[in-house]
């Protein structure tokens, strides 16, 4: 097990852990399908090496898997130094490497990812030195989470007819079709008038023949609801804006 593979194992195991108490296929996790290998391979094949020093070392593609592993360890170290760790440190599992990321509890590993992409040293450097693309760290973290989740629940890295993630989701796999046609809510759209103050027409008044009537809904007053919602949306909008920054 390489350093890169073992550190990525600690990542994918936190995202989709084995849960031995669960029934049947739900007990299995990412490591049961060697997702660490799939993600490592994906990262090492993410992008061709540009002309320059990396290519002159003999790499055809960028060796991003060890970069990812190194970043995860930096994030873990930062979490420890900031005293933001909330779980006890632990001995790494056999599949893990030995760096700090591999020694964090599973939720703390996610907190380390959050530091790397949003709240920690690299995002702060990105703010302070806008000419250096430190934000690429955040891009790699999002990529790691995206690839892990997609591969865990698809055939990515697994050519069998019905990979584990499909079985866990009870997805039967590709189908030729389904007999679920229930007719039409609208038979044909109409070329309605638009743009015009008093000249504008209500859609459902023009001929009525082409559209099936709406069910009518219930008695709630949508206007009242929207007024109410827009007030709370404003308040929450501020909160979200703050979180984003």
């Amino acid at each position: 097990m390489s350093y890169a593979r073992g550190t990525i194992a600690a990542l994918v195991d936190a995202v989709v852990p084995g849960t031995p108490g669960a029934e049947g296929v739900q007990a299995d996790g990412a490591l049961d399908i060697d997702l660490d290998e799939t993600v490592e391979t994906a990262f090492n094949e993410l992008q061709e090496a540009p002309e320059g020093p990396v290519r002159s070392l003999g790499y055809e593609t960028m060796p991003f898997a060890p970069v990812l592993a190194l970043l995860l360890d930096i994030g873990a170290l930062e979490l420890v130094l900031r005293r933001e760790r909330e779980e006890s440190l632990r001995s790494p599992k056999d599949a893990y490497a030995g760096g700090p990321f591999s020694r964090l509890g599973p939720e703390d590993r996610m907190r380390a990812v959050r530091l790397l992409e949003a709240d920690g040293l690299f995002p702060a450097l990105d703010e302070r030195y806008p000419d250096v693309p430190f934000g690429i760290v955040a891009y790699l973290m999002q990529g790691a989470m995206f690839i892990t989740a997609m591969a865990a629940y698809s055939d990515w890295g697994d050519d069998t007819e019905r990979p584990q993630g499909w079985r866990q989701a009870d997805y039967p796999g590709p189908a030729e079709g389904y007999a679920v046609h229930m007719g039409y809510e609208v038979e044909e759209f109409v070329e309605n008038d638009y743009g015009g103050g008093d000249g504008a027409e209500e859609d459902d008044t023009d001929d009525g023949a082409t559209a099936m009537a709406a069910d009518g809904g219930d008695d709630s007053d949508p206007e009242a609801w929207f007024d109410d919602r827009s007030r709370s949306a404003d308040e929450a909008g501020d909160a979200e804006g703050g979180a984003d920054r």
Binding site: Y184, Y194, D203, A214, W225
Partner: peptide
């Protein structure tokens, strides 16, 4: 419908509504 939206049947959309 339960949230109070109307069905839109026109191609030129200016108002809120649900539709296929």
């Amino acid at each position: 419908r339960r949230a109070g939206y109307d069905l839109t049947t026109g191609l030129n959309v200016e108002e809120e509504g649900y539709r296929p």
